[in-house]
Amino acid sequence: MSAVFELDKTKLRESFGSASLSYDRVAGLQRTVGINLLQRVAPAQLTGTVVDLGCGTGFLTKSLLDAENVERIVALDIALPMLHAARQKLGDTGRLHYVCGDAESPPLNTNSVDTVVSNLALQWCRDLTAVFCGLHRILKADGELVFSTFGPHTLCELKQAWAAVDDYHHVNEFYRETEIRRCLADAGFKEIAVQSEIYRPVYGSVLALMKELKSMGAHNVSSGRNKRLTTKQEMTSMIEAYPLNDANIEATFEVFIVSARVENND
């Protein structure tokens, strides 16, 4: 698998935009991962300008606002409705700036950012090397990038179930650790560290899992997806093929927490 995914960016923007109203009700996994990410970031130690990349409705941004030494916070998201939801929640403060933009070409000045944090957003980017090059550009010397992202074992049960039905890509693909490390190194990052964790939440039904994925905006947006409506029989066959664990419907989410730094040439 290359480090360029065939994602429909228009579909992606629409997907997360339409999910903005339901996101907070169902994004329990994002919050759990975000809390773990904040432990790695240590907001109290942050200074200068911090970017929350793919801020969504502002869960991570709110914690960054509590960091007294942070002078400027940029909440950046590709979906304007997500930014509206974040603004309604957090309001307007002198330190907080909302920016609608693409992570693959962040509309920020070169060498203007001290830290970039991102919680479960970069897996939706098509070209990971382009993303990291853009972030390397905006970060200052010795600046740090800390992010969480899904790994390739994510939703393996759902992939297995759909594979019993047809050959379409019903579930998004996610980057391997080796690809993430290589793309970071190619972009010029140093001191790359990756931690892997597995989460297996339990759902009341396969349909409940799929409804939650859609409510988070995280359903399939690959260009190789089946673009016709799934039939009732196909859906039934997929549900019957979904693997159970002691009669429980679990979904695997593999999460990487990654940190990397821009080299200080002083």
Rank of each mutant, 00 (worst) to 15 (best):
A218H: 07
K9Y: 11
H219F: 10
F147S: 01
P106H: 08
P201W: 10
L108I: 03
V70I: 15
R225H: 09
L64E: 00
V26T: 12
S18I: 06
M238K: 05
Q30K: 08
Q195R: 13
D186V: 07
H219M: 04
F189R: 01
G91A: 10
Q123M: 13
I239A: 11
R40G: 01
T230F: 03
A164Q: 15
F253D: 00
T129M: 05
C156Y: 11
D142V: 04
C183A: 14
F16C: 02
L7C: 05
D127V: 10
R126P: 09
R176W: 12
L122W: 07
F150C: 01
Y168N: 09
N265S: 14
A27M: 06
T93P: 00
A163G: 10
D92T: 12
L64H: 02
I138T: 11
W162R: 03
E71Y: 04
T236R: 15
A103E: 08
R40P: 00
P106S: 03
C55S: 14
T10M: 04
G101C: 00
R228T: 11
V206W: 03
T32D: 14
C100G: 02
V206P: 00
L213K: 04
Q45F: 12
A161Q: 02
F59K: 01
F147D: 01
V116D: 03
F174R: 03
L76I: 08
N264K: 14
M210I: 11
Y23R: 04
V4W: 03
C133F: 03
D246A: 12
L244Y: 11
E157R: 08
P201A: 06
L46G: 01
A187L: 08
D142W: 05
D246C: 08
V165R: 06
K232W: 09
G94P: 05
L108V: 02
F253V: 03
R13Q: 15
A260T: 08
V116R: 09
S105V: 12
V258M: 05
A193M: 12
E263D: 07
H170Q: 08
K89T: 10
R95M: 06
A85G: 01
I198C: 05
R137E: 04
T61I: 06
A130V: 10
E234S: 07
Y168W: 15
L38N: 06
V50M: 09
S105T: 14
D266L: 14
D8V: 06
A85M: 02
Q30L: 04
K214F: 09
M82F: 03
L7R: 06
R225L: 05
H97R: 12
D166Y: 08
V117T: 13
G28M: 07
K232P: 01
Q195D: 15
A208G: 06
K211A: 14
S222Q: 11
G204A: 03
R87I: 06
R25G: 01
D186M: 12
D52L: 02
K159F: 05
N265M: 13
D127R: 13
A193V: 12
D127N: 15
V113W: 05
V131Q: 06
T93V: 04
A185W: 07
L64P: 00
A185F: 08
T10V: 10
H84G: 02
H219S: 15
A3Y: 12
G217I: 04
V165F: 04
L60S: 13
A141I: 09
T252L: 09
L135C: 11
I78L: 15
D166R: 08
V262I: 13
E144L: 10
L139D: 01
L135Q: 15
H97K: 14
L64N: 00
